[in-house]
């Protein structure tokens, strides 16, 4: 009996293992292979670090910095918006909580491209906002094509990824802790800072990673909302593959981006462990 169950258990994992090897491990090896090779004039590949050293000499460094800065700002804005929202949600009746969480997730049922395109229509010089301004006699303003528009696009698209983990962790906090804090003389702010915040830190950390990682590698939002004027690392990688056919440089950039993200995750995990050991 016991033996059979353990067989079933391993068998259940096989499809997933096959899947991961085929679609995660093998592609990653390809990325590594392309990043560490260069194409010879006769079409053959040879091992070389030339791509990685080229990163330093060409002007990719500012692009990395730019992507990281945009992602940091977007993540912090998401956090500042999502944390109070998640807290407010947990204070609602359970039945209305479900409804409200569904509203938070609603935009995610639509495709990211469509959401971004809708924002373009709203912000365009002849879009909804500008038409309203014009109808009350104000001049039209250029809302697209600046850094704020790119940030807006990122925040809008990734906000649910911040709200959901924070809300999940917060709603599981035992209310007795809060009552105990009040009994021991904590006022509202002290309860928030010294009880709720540490207990919900794991949600905050997983929210931050879930927003930061897609924002740092985003490529569509910056092109559309920034009118193609703010080049992110994702845009650069896309161009290497789609129009320059430089698979080696594209793979190198992707590899560097992945390493950066892994470093960020490792740092975040360290913080997470200190604060009581939670998984991201």
């Amino acid at each position: 009996m016991n033996k059979k169950r353990s067989f079933l258990r391993t068998a259940a994992a096989y499809p997933h293992m096959v899947w991961s090897v085929l679609f995660i491990v093998v592609p990653l090896l390809f990325v590594l292979y392309y990043a560490l090779t260069v194409e010879n004039p006769d079409g053959s590949f040879s091992f070389s670090f030339a791509n990685i050293t080229a990163l330093g000499s060409e002007s990719y460094f500012p692009v990395f910095i730019r992507s990281i800065c945009f992602a940091v700002v977007a993540t912090v804005i998401c956090l500042l918006l999502a944390y109070p929202l998640a807290y407010a949600l947990t204070q609602c009746k359970v039945s209305s909580q479900r409804m409200l969480i569904m509203l938070v997730m609603l935009p995610m049922w639509m495709n990211l491209l469509i959401r971004t395109y809708s924002w373009m229509n709203i912000l365009e010089t002849n879009g909804v906002i500008n038409n309203f301004l014009a109808s009350i006699g104000l001049p039209r303003v250029q809302l697209l094509g600046n850094a704020a528009a790119v940030i807006l696009g990122m925040v809008y698209n990734f906000l649910p990824y911040m709200v959901l983990p924070i809300y999940t962790v917060m709603s599981k906090i035992d209310r007795r802790y809060i009552e105990a804090a009040a009994d021991l003389g904590c006022n509202g702010w002290q309860t928030m800072l010294r009880v709720i915040l540490p207990l919900s830190a794991s949600g905050v950390i997983s929210g931050i990673t879930m927003v930061f990682v897609p924002s740092v590698s985003t490529f569509y939002i910056s092109q559309k909302m920034g009118n193609g004027r703010f080049e992110m690392i994702g845009d650069t990688i896309e161009r290497q593959f789609m129009s320059n056919y430089d698979y080696h440089m594209g793979a190198t950039l992707s590899l560097v981006l992945m390493v950066l993200i892994i470093i960020c995750l490792a740092v975040m995990n360290r913080f997470g462990e200190e604060d009581g050991g939670v998984l991201v």
């Binding site: 002007s59 730019r66 945009f70 700002v73 004027r229 320059n244």
Partner: peptide, 20 residues
């Protein structure tokens, strides 16, 4: 590539990141 990489100024974002 060089043309595209030189982006429009986004000083505000850098300053904001610094503050954060």
């Amino acid at each position: 590539e060089a043309l595209k990489l030189s982006s429009a100024p986004a000083g505000g974002i850098y300053a904001l990141t610094g503050v954060i």
